[in-house]
Design a protein around this nucleic acid. Structure first.
Lengths: 167, 167
DNA sequence: TTTTAGTTGTTATATCATAACAAAATCATA
DNA sequence: TATGATTTTGTTATGATATAACAACTAAAA
């Protein structure tokens, strides 16, 4: 982990710390923005964070249903929409799955490293690339709004032979 | 358009030239690689190129069906798989749609500028960013395999007020 | 020509996501 | 604390995207 900006969801430390911190940030942000972090939304966010990997909408829905929440799809998609708009989670487009955002409190872009083998995902923040992309786009008269940057390959654990590591 | 590497699918010139050239490249590549560009595959590729925008799988399936091809989903998904693996088209993950690849004959990454307004897509090739991403990933012990880079926003036409331009 | 590999046909189903409208909870303020 | 406005949630239905599994066919190789 160390001093770079990336957030490795494969870590071995006590993940509860991350979850707690994410939830605290979420609450602060919602209050600040006059948004309501209702029970479903809050629990959805927790469940997404509890998963070390991007979570599918229906996986999340199943977990919520187990806990007595309504089990119809709109329930989960509404929660997801809310969380995405609040900047609290990202959608990983190439996986149709959702991931807790590690820098919800900072303006940033969600760039991802996705392991093809163990399916763990690292989020990273790279201002140089962001700046280069803006420059490139504007050279073509294009005004950038959102960036989907998803890189797949092999993470260091899987490359080193311990296939499916950190499950 | 001019001298940069981007391929603007919004162009006003005779698109047939693009299609012909793409098909010629496709045929050459397939022969080179011992792949068979069968009727469905070839026609699917043409239809994707005939669309100025990324085409959905079921849109493509409908067009194929009109022409007497089998109308069940596997038909189109098989063709799409083939074309993607051959490097002849890209999938735009954030749109669940498919786009003819403008540089099928060159090793490259498909980076896209997607207009939120008119939904036209430009493909661009940017070696600097590619290099930076590889460097960034490898610094984390990550071995890159594929890159999904999809930037959305407003293209110059739409920004200049002519909303929905180039339809 | 027989085998083999690759491709296509066919049926069924899995997975992901939203529309539309009713009911309930929450909030603002009279 | 009523009342009305707004937001959130419940519910039913459906749309959109994608794959599994196995049979039939076709082209290429042996």
């Amino acid at each position: 982990m160390s001093k770079n900006t990336s957030q490795d969801h494969t870590h071995h430390h006590n993940h509860n710390v991350c979850i707690d911190s994410a939830l605290a940030t979420a609450e602060a942000l919602c209050i600040e923005q006059g948004q309501r972090l209702t029970k479903v939304r809050r629990r959805a966010l927790e469940l997404i964070w509890e998963s070390h990997r991007p979570l599918g909408a229906y996986q999340l829905l199943a977990k919520l249903a187990e806990e007595g929440f309504n089990s119809a799809p709109p329930t989960v998609y509404r929660a997801l929409d809310f969380l995405i708009n609040a900047g609290l989670i990202h959608k990983v487009e190439s996986m149709n799955a959702y991931l807790g955002c590690a820098h919800a409190d900072k303006e940033h872009k969600g760039y991802f490293l996705i392991c093809d083998d163990c399916h763990n995902v690292m989020e990273f923040d790279y201002q140089d690339i962001h700046a280069a992309l803006i420059a490139k786009a504007s050279k073509q008269g294009f005004e950038l709004r959102a960036e989907t940057i998803e890189l797949t390959g092999l993470c260091s654990s899987c490359k080193d032979g311990s296939a499916g590591a950190n499950v």
